[in-house]
């Protein structure tokens, strides 16, 4: 249908594109700026003369970072906790979601399990009891303390449970008649069908583990065991806990920028793929039709 486009419409479109473009750039340009600073020479970076293009291009900041042991080690801790933590999260989410996706006729005591999960979603012991509990277990200063306490993510399990509920029933019933038990059913039928949901949960878990820093700050007595984000937090805020050498926080702008940029890299790599998963994740959770 050919229609005359009004002047008002054209004006609106121009303003609209400009506004949305500006919003989008505001989310993106700070990242470019950080990259530019990290690749710039100290003499430009320190007085903050760098905009979006590196001045006096150098890889010096990155070389300095990886020459030191602390940064590389923090990076290693982050990689380990992210890989192991994500794997644990995904496996336990599937194991939790599948039984809960059954109704209470098929799965007696479902209400008991579900109630426990709901309590966890709305209430927790709080900072000090958790702190003393994990300390008492002797988990401090190990990578386990970053993985185990949150290993079974209830919220993700509820999302996945809703996804599994929406799967067509007849496939499972057919397998049931063939004599398959629930173990086989989960492994051979339900898990493969739930791959989109598993992808969503993996993404949540990956981002959550990589970005997590407060647990690292609480449950480590020495900086040697910090994951990258915790280490970075101490460097950036220059508010090192008293037991930590404050010299570590005296670093230049380009070094700070390089550390920030490295902390972003894994997310920059996964996030373009994230949108599809997030939409399914959200729609299967909250906006069920």
């Amino acid at each position: 249908m050919a229609r005359k486009i009004s002047k008002g419409r054209i004006a609106f479109q121009i303003v609209n594109y400009a506004l949305l473009g500006a919003l989008a750039l505001s989310c993106f340009l700070p990242v470019v700026h950080m990259l530019a600073v990290s690749l710039s020479d100290k003499i430009y970076a320190e007085p903050k003369l760098v905009g979006l293009i590196p001045k006096g291009f150098t890889l010096g900041a990155y070389r300095t970072l990886f020459a030191g042991r602390t940064f590389s080690h923090a990076l290693l801790v982050s990689v380990i906790r992210t890989l192991a933590g994500t794997a644990a999260n995904v496996v336990l989410t599937v194991l939790l979601a599948y039984p809960l996706s059954k109704n209470s006729r098929e799965f007696p005591f479902r209400a008991v399990y579900m109630t426990l999960c709901l309590i966890v979603m709305v209430f927790n012991a709080g900072l000090v009891p958790n702190y003393l509990f994990l300390n008492g277990l002797g988990l401090f200063d190990t990578v386990w303390v970053l993985i185990l306490p949150g290993a079974a993510p209830v919220f993700s399990a509820v999302l996945m449970m809703n996804f599994m509920r929406a799967l067509p029933k007849d496939i499972e019933e057919a397998a049931m008649i063939d004599g398959a038990g629930y173990f086989r059913m989960l492994a051979a039928v339900v898990a493969p069908l739930s791959l989109p949901s598993i992808a969503t949960v993996s993404l949540f878990a990956f981002v959550g583990h990589w970005n997590s820093w407060f647990d690292g700050l609480l449950y480590n007595r020495s900086m040697d065991h910090y994951p990258l984000q915790t280490y970075l937090q101490v460097v950036l805020t220059a508010r090192a806990p008293s037991n930590i050498d404050s010299a570590a926080t005296q670093v230049g702008q380009n070094l700070k920028a390089a550390q920030i940029f490295i902390a972003m890299v894994p997310l920059l790599l996964v996030y373009p793929f994230a949108q599809r998963f997030f939409v399914t994740g959200i729609t299967m959770g909250s906006v069920k039709g």
């Binding site: 700070p30 950080m34 990589w210 970005n211 984000q229 970075l232 950036l236 700070k256 920030i260 902390a263």
Partner: peptide, 8 residues
């Protein structure tokens, strides 16, 4: 993370 954003 807020660490990264805080730094920026």
């Amino acid at each position: 993370s807020w660490v990264v954003l805080g730094g920026i």
